[in-house]
């Protein structure tokens, strides 16, 4: 009897506890909804971005194959006597000595006519990727039978270690992106695995490949895979990784490139 009366007397407090339970449930629900709204569409967004950059990589490769280039170092279609499809010039260059250009695979000799095809391949890729400056990339022609690279170009954005303390306890001296100071390398990698090890550090990559067959009339030809890979510029691939004994990369001297572009234009105009 005494207990019954006691419970009756506690009625109002029970209603208060109920309402507090209700508030707890609502708060949990609100947190869940807020979390949902803040992450809503992240996957869709990622999928759309992936699709865009994959398409960009594929379009870049197609543009390389379908475009014509001037057959000199001028980079100007109006300042040349000869124009041809880039891949035809590459193929024609390849047949006599089974290599592209007359210089070593990891160098371009500006001004040497034997390296015009090699130079134009570099210039065209650089031009097509110019609208996406925050992306690094590589392009190679790989002979699948001999397992050798015939051409290997890589662009990287150097990141410098900051001298100022950022205040971040874990990473006080952060790596800073230095815009515009891009580096282009021609390389002679020891094998496919060396390249794979370097690219695997880049994180999210977008790649596109096309199989080719450089085939003269008399022989079976050479099976080559042209691959273009791009990734958001980051500090994981830096010059010191490229200038190794296994990658054998040499930086393309962009001052020489400018110099020869000007002199080629002047020569053509004078002619």
């Amino acid at each position: 009897m005494g207990l019954k009366n006691y419970i009756k007397q506690q009625k109002a407090q029970a209603a208060l506890v109920d309402s507090l339970f209700f508030l707890t449930i609502i708060t949990a629900l609100a947190v869940f909804m807020f979390q949902y709204s803040s992450t809503y569409g992240d996957r869709v967004d990622l999928a759309a971005k992936n699709l865009y950059f994959k398409e960009y990589a594929s379009s870049t490769l197609k543009t390389i194959f379908y475009s014509e280039v001037p057959l000199n170092f001028s980079k100007d279609i109006n300042n040349t006597d000869e124009i041809d499809y880039l891949m035809i010039t590459i193929e024609a260059d390849y047949f006599p000595d089974k290599k592209i250009g007359v210089s070593d695979i990891n160098t371009i000799e500006f001004g040497n006519d034997g390296d015009i095809a090699k130079f134009n391949l570099y210039a065209l890729i650089k031009s097509v990727m110019n609208p996406l400056p925050t992306y690094d990339y590589l392009f190679y022609l790989y002979d699948t039978r001999s397992a050798n690279f015939n051409y290997f170009l890589i662009k990287i954005t150097p990141f410098e270690e900051s001298t100022q303390n950022s205040g971040d306890i874990k990473n006080p001296y952060q790596k800073i992106y230095s815009p515009g100071n891009y580096k282009y390398y021609l390389c002679d990698p020891d094998g496919y695995s060396v390249v794979r090890d370097i690219v695997s550090g880049a994180g999210q990559v977008y790649s596109s490949s096309i199989p080719l067959n450089f085939r003269p009339k008399s022989s079976e030809g050479t099976r080559i895979v042209a691959t273009f890979t791009m990734w958001p510029a980051n500090a994981s691939i830096q010059p010191k990784q490229l200038e190794t004994a296994t990658m054998k990369c040499k930086e393309i001297n962009q001052d020489d490139e400018k110099l020869f572009a000007i002199s080629s234009s002047q020569n053509t105009v004078m002619q």
Binding site: A12, A15, L16, D18, S19, L20, F22, L23, I25, I26, T27, L29, A30, M33, F34, Y36, S37
Partner: peptide, 23 residues
């Protein structure tokens, strides 16, 4: 008598609809 329990209920409803609308 129910006033103390009504306050959290109203608060809960306001929070719920605000977050729902935002979402």
């Amino acid at each position: 008598d129910d006033l103390p329990s009504l306050i959290p209920i109203f608060l809960g409803l306001v929070v719920f609809f605000a977050v729902f609308l935002n979402t």
